[in-house]
Design a protein around this nucleic acid. Structure first.
Lengths: 251, 251
DNA sequence: AGACCAGATTGACATTCATCAATCAGGCAC
DNA sequence: GTGCCTGATTGATGAATGTCAATCTGGTCT
């Protein structure tokens, strides 16, 4: 892997506190790889061999059952995914595919398991990472069960707004059909719902989202820290909600 | 706490491998308490002070948003819950209430955090517990997003059947409205769906479930290890699916 | 036994949501 | 620029699910 990536990886909450020697060893067995867009990195059901870390690009985690497919999360740099499967040495519960050309660091699961057994700091980091990931999924499940699709969309927009640098005008970083799948609805339904939300404090033009009346939007779906997160105590990497969005220059 | 409970707690995957001295210390700060049925043990949003372990009875984990409420899990002996919140020292994402008279062991979160920092075995156990809990929620979310209500009900029955001692005839251990909420549907819808499933290999009389044609039921919702679990490598305690059911004597 | 009560069921109805099909719009290759 | 291709949108429709209200049922208490 490129030497210049090391500091960034080292700075991840998961690796930040471990002993240097152990970090070195972990990285020695790892390798970064460049993948084209649309490539299936892992397939659900396969044995978990590598912890994946997205260095560049974006990766979708999705699940399939019969003919149905749904997006569970989008991981962006620098985020890790499928940590739990590696730890349990169990089959992946989700598939992963690149949304764009992406560089991914692959860390052997066996090394991982060996090292947190002898590096207490790393063990604690792993515990925190997993606890954060767990809470992220619980929040996702809560959103699915407690909110209808209109409310989920409104809450999603508000959350993206919070994460954007310019909270009042940002662009959706992902295809709408992916957002729809993430929110547990069809693209058609999302499209109509978005249109229905104009007049509730949002304006849309393509990927462009402008919040004109935050209170009105919040009235559709009162934001709740216990659903929309994040934990007060810092961002949860790993399986997170769809990507932070970039600011966009005024037209 | 009662001395006779100690061995059972000690046998939990979470505590099995830790040093005896540390287990002792952990238990010294803990206390078991008997609660009546229907009592709210914890309320979502409150700070996480104690890891909870159900020794007797049954506890429902549920979430609220506005006027909506949904069941996220039912924990039965001997199972732990809200480990993640304790670890992150963050607010509970779910509320908990006793479904029946229950005895619960309360372990101070601060002790927990202190001890897994110095007991590597306990740290590893915690990691495994969390990884299992994470995967359980992911499976739950997958079920919600990939299956319609009819399929969820069929899969639920099949799963309960697998967990029962007599797989072909068992009783639902929980109120139906609770099951409905867990499955993300209304009690009315569950009732109709259950009726609709007669003729697909199931017979119902009250809480009594009899599977007459497993294949027919499985045809409604093909079981999938990646949704219905469990992990091949052993039962995941903590936040698990609704309770194992007891066998029932033939009428 | 009888009254009572929470939960379950049923029916009628409204709403949400998915599906199918037909455009529409924007980006990219040539 | 033109053609094409994917994703987005829109419309029409039906299926799935929620809601409200009215029983029904099983168990508990007295």
């Amino acid at each position: 892997m490129r030497a210049e990536d090391l500091p960034e990886v080292r700075r991840l909450p998961l690796f930040r506190d471990m002993l240097h020697a152990n970090f070195e060893q972990l990285m020695q067995g790892s390798y970064a790889q460049l993948f084209p867009a649309g490539l299936e990195l892992i397939r659900q059901g396969d044995p978990a061999d590598f912890l994946h870390i997205v260095l560049e690009g974006a990766v979708e985690l999705h699940a399939d059952w019969g003919d149905n497919r749904c997006t569970m999360a989008v991981v962006q740099p620098v985020g890790t995914f499928i940590l739990a499967a590696c730890i349990k040495d169990a089959p992946y519960l989700m598939s992963a595919r690149t949304l764009e050309r992406s560089r991914v660091l692959l860390v052997p699961a066996s090394d991982l398991r060996a090292i947190f057994r002898r590096d207490p700091e790393f063990a604690v980091s792993t515990i925190n990472e997993l606890a954060g990931a767990y809470r992220a999924v619980v929040r996702h499940a809560k959103g699915l069960k407690l909110r209808n699709s209109r409310e989920r969309v409104a809450a999603y927009l508000l959350k993206q707004s919070r994460m954007a640098e310019n909270a009042d005008s940002f662009i959706l970083g992902v295809e709408k059909r992916l957002i729809a799948s993430y929110l547990g609805m069809t693209p058609e339904n999302l499209s109509r719902t978005l249109r229905g939300l104009e007049g509730n404090g949002v304006t849309l033009r393509g990927q462009q989202v402008t919040i004109t009346d935050r209170a009105a939007l919040a009235a559709v779906a009162p934001p709740d820290r216990l659903i929309d997160g994040p934990d007060p105590g810092g961002a949860t990497a790993g399986v997170s909600l769809p990507p932070p969005t970039r600011v966009n220059p005024a037209p």
